[in-house]
Amino acid sequence: MKTSLLITEAPTQADLDVLGQGLTGFNERATGLPGWELRPFAALLRDEGRNTIGGAIGSSYYGWLAIDLLWLPESLRGTGLGRQIMELTEKEARARGCTGIRLDTFSFQARGFYEKCGFSVFGTLPDHPPGHTRYWLAKRFD
């Protein structure tokens, strides 16, 4: 079979499907667990006009809830809303039967906040971005 490699900033849905289905099939065979069973998640903070102004988004799969993004406007930080979002997220993760929650943050973001919420660092990547560190944190429900 003749092959070729290319770089693109615009993979098609078919491209994404081939890789996703291939990896999912491999993972199923390796773990004995069914597919990703990916379930989206959002804990949204809305204003009186029902406009989303902050919150957390992510998904659960393989028994963990992953927070991909968490954001609050600066004017609402320190008001307890961040902790409420994290508590709601944990409640949902437990309701889904998750083992825990994982997320990542940068050294100039909210590592201390997550640690106050019971998360522990399990990985670091220095100089990502240059001059800063990226941290991976998890909170396991035991």
Rank of each mutant, 00 (worst) to 15 (best):
E115G: 05
I101G: 00
T89N: 02
H128G: 02
P126G: 10
V121F: 05
L16F: 08
W136S: 05
D17V: 07
P126K: 13
L88W: 12
F141Y: 06
I53W: 08
H128A: 13
Y62M: 14
G55Q: 10
C117T: 08
S59T: 08
E90V: 01
A110D: 04
F122V: 12
F108P: 13
T79F: 02
S4C: 03
P73K: 00
I7G: 01
L69D: 12
G80N: 06
G118I: 07
R134N: 14
R111M: 09
F122P: 01
L5K: 01
E28Q: 15
R50M: 15
G82R: 02
E90M: 08
R46H: 13
L70S: 01
R39V: 11
G78D: 05
S107T: 09
F113N: 10
L19K: 00
G123E: 12
E87R: 15
I57L: 14
M1F: 03
R29H: 13
Y114K: 01
S75W: 10
R102M: 12
R94P: 06
L19H: 03
Q84P: 05
V121D: 06
A42K: 13
L70V: 06
P34N: 14
I67P: 00
S120T: 14
G80T: 09
L45W: 11
G118M: 04
R134F: 04
A138M: 05
Y61G: 03
L81C: 03
L70Q: 06
C117H: 12
E115I: 00
G54P: 11
L125T: 02
G100E: 03
G80V: 11
W136Y: 15
T24E: 15
E37A: 11
S4L: 05
P129F: 14
A138S: 09
T105W: 00
A95H: 09
P40Y: 10
A30Q: 15
T89Y: 01
E9R: 04
F26G: 00
K116E: 07
L125R: 12
I67W: 01
D104P: 02
H132I: 01
K91D: 12
